[in-house]
């Protein structure tokens, strides 16, 4: 479904991604682990097209998308959430979800009726809001809801495009344990044919949702395999030290 071949990226002298080759099958749920600065977000940015790789190829759903701009990859079914909330801050929760659904349904360029009032758009907004338990806050502006809810909405906007592949960059960072648990349930309830790539620091959550695990360190894939195998890996222990012992 999503594949990278020998992906390399340097910023001047800093080599951020080294020869990364990954292959995700349709419906696979993979968690990316790695310490701060390992190059996880930079890898995502290359997958979505926000950063061009120095070399290597990216294949989405059988097609080489390495040279495609961000929007075209998104239209091919790739969606993402950001580590740092990237929401429409001045708009309501409903409008945030509505814009995502509207654009993804190809109604973002039309003249004519109100793009946000289309029944299909509203249906998606209500579904996603219900999934994220944001239904009671649809009319609130982003600046009026709590940080945890904004974090949920960040993923909700990505989900509202009804993607084939979704990339989530630390979706639970900065939220309380309660909400993280709720998020875990949400992931479990997602359709099984949705391909999922999640960057996650919470080891428990990672192991609970992962079909497969990739560990990045200094831009390099140091582990790629099943969670059970990862548990035994001494490499992971070294990288994650304390937090690993607790898990």
């Amino acid at each position: 479904m999503l594949e990278t071949r020998n992906l390399d990226k340097s910023f001047g002298a800093i080599h951020v991604t080294r020869d990364v080759s990954l292959k995700l099958e349709r419906g696979e749920r993979r968690v990316i682990l790695g310490p701060n600065g390992a190059g996880k977000t930079t890898l995502f940015n290359q997958l979505t097209g926000e950063i061009a790789p120095s070399s290597g190829r990216i294949i989405l759903d059988g097609a080489d998308v390495t040279a495609l701009p961000v929007a075209q990859r998104a239209r091919a079914g790739l969606s993402r959430s950001y580590q740092k909330n990237t929401l429409f801050d001045g708009l309501s929760v409903a409008d945030n979800l509505g814009l995502a659904a509207m654009v993804a349904q190809g109604r973002g360029m039309g003249l004519g009726r109100d793009g946000l009032l289309h029944p299909e758009v509203r249906e998606t907004v209500e579904e996603v809001a219900a999934q994220l338990r944001l239904s009671d806050h649809l009319d609130a502006r982003v600046s009026e809801i709590s940080y945890g809810m904004r974090r949920q909405l960040e993923v909700g906007v990505a989900l509202a495009t009804r993607p084939k592949v979704i990339l989530m960059d630390e979706p639970t960072s900065g939220v309380g344990p309660e909400m993280a648990k709720g998020f875990h349930d949400l992931l479990a309830a997602l359709p099984r044919d949705l391909t999922l790539l999640i960057i996650e620091h919470d080891i428990d959550l990672a192991f609970a949702v992962a079909d497969t695990i990739t560990v990045l360190n200094y831009g390099e894939v140091v582990f790629d395999g099943l969670p059970e195998a990862a548990r035994g890996s001494s490499l992971l222990k070294e990288i994650y030290l304390g937090s690993w012992e607790d898990a």
Binding site: T86, L87, L91, L99, M102, G108, R113, G115
Partner: peptide
């Protein structure tokens, strides 16, 4: 319209 709503979205992010 859809175009105008997109424009507001672009204005925000």
């Amino acid at each position: 319209s859809g175009l105008g709503r997109s424009l507001s979205g672009v204005h925000e992010s």
